[in-house]
Amino acid sequence: MPTWQPSADHAALLARAQMFSAIRDFFAERNVLEVHVPLLASHTVTDPDVESIAVPGYGFLQTSPEYYLKRLLAHGLPGCYQLAPAFRHDEQGRLHNPEFYLLEWYQLGYDAKRLMSEVAALCDLILGPAEYQQVQYAQLVPDLNAPRDELDLAFALACESLKPGRFFIVDYPAEQAALARLNPQDPSVADRFELVVDGVELANGYYELTDPDEHRRRFEQDNQIRKARGLEPRQLDETFLAALHAGLPDCAGVALGVDRLLMHKLGAKSLDAVITFRPG
């Protein structure tokens, strides 16, 4: 007999519903607008470490609402958030599911530091208050000049060892800026941060890059890396680049995995305990 029962128990589902409601209240109090952007779109990210799920005839399930949310900001919308599923190909495990709930939000006029304190406030609300320590990326890896795959592995293992407690990792190397600005005082590091709670990565945020030419340059570089790794290059999303040309206001943004946040709240060891069903 196949297992048909949900993997999360009743109490976890209740806690989940309460958490979603608390998140929405948190943003309502701060006048951050909830929006819904397409989850299925014709373009996707160029990031060589994020694989999108292609839907023949339609495009791709979105790995994050980033480009759409920024298009809304470029069109004059104030701070906004989306709380919705995001999709990533081939990510399956205790802490990964190809479909997961992502809370992504943007605040106009914020920098990374100010957004970090807002992320901490949200975590305090859901998990209860605690201290947050800052760690620099360079403190976590033995050799910043190591080849990228060694660096990624050393970093992944170091993140797992950041426990117990809540940690913001800051000062990412410029090569790992993704869509963050480089630090004006020290352009060898990016204004990017990640939140790690008890050894598990929960959120990734940037003081957002706004320069369209620099975006195009980074996307093209991503595609070079994709080709070198034997991955299909991605068509650049020209609508997003056009929005950047129109002007993305100064802002900071962050994406937070809410399934994992609930895992921490409930002390669960696996996503199975906090999602209704695990397909497959």
């Binding site: 990031d47 470490d49 994020v50 081939d90 990510e91 399956q92 495990g93 205790r94 802490l95 990964h96 990228r148 795959d149 990624d152 592995l153 970093f155 992944a156 293992l157 993140c159 797992e160 790992q176 993704a178 990640e194 990565e201 990734n204 994406a255």
Partner: peptide, 13 residues
């Protein structure tokens, strides 16, 4: 056992 390890923006192991 097979555990999937992946930072959000980094290679998977």
């Amino acid at each position: 056992e097979n555990e999937f390890v992946k930072p959000g923006k980094g290679q998977a192991f």
